[in-house]
Amino acid sequence: MADAPTPIMFAIVTTNKEAVIGGMAPVFVAPNEVERDRIAMWLCRITNAIAHDLHNGTVILTVNQSQP
């Protein structure tokens, strides 16, 4: 881990499709919050990402560039 991490957006998991419009990261749409958290956790564990809840039904996943 470097002194100052530089996160880049890796994926977006949302239950609210209208809140997200395209971009560099893939968007995973989940039917409910339980399913959303399950997808987010799987993606986190697989890709070494960090999940952040935006409190509008959307969870974003970021990856720190400097991490191995």
Partner: peptide
């Protein structure tokens, strides 16, 4: 719901319930 605090200090936003 998701903001981790130590005493008065906000540390980070933890998105996963686990």
């Amino acid at each position: 719901g998701t903001l981790l605090y130590v005493g008065p200090v906000m540390m980070m936003e933890v998105g996963l319930p686990d």
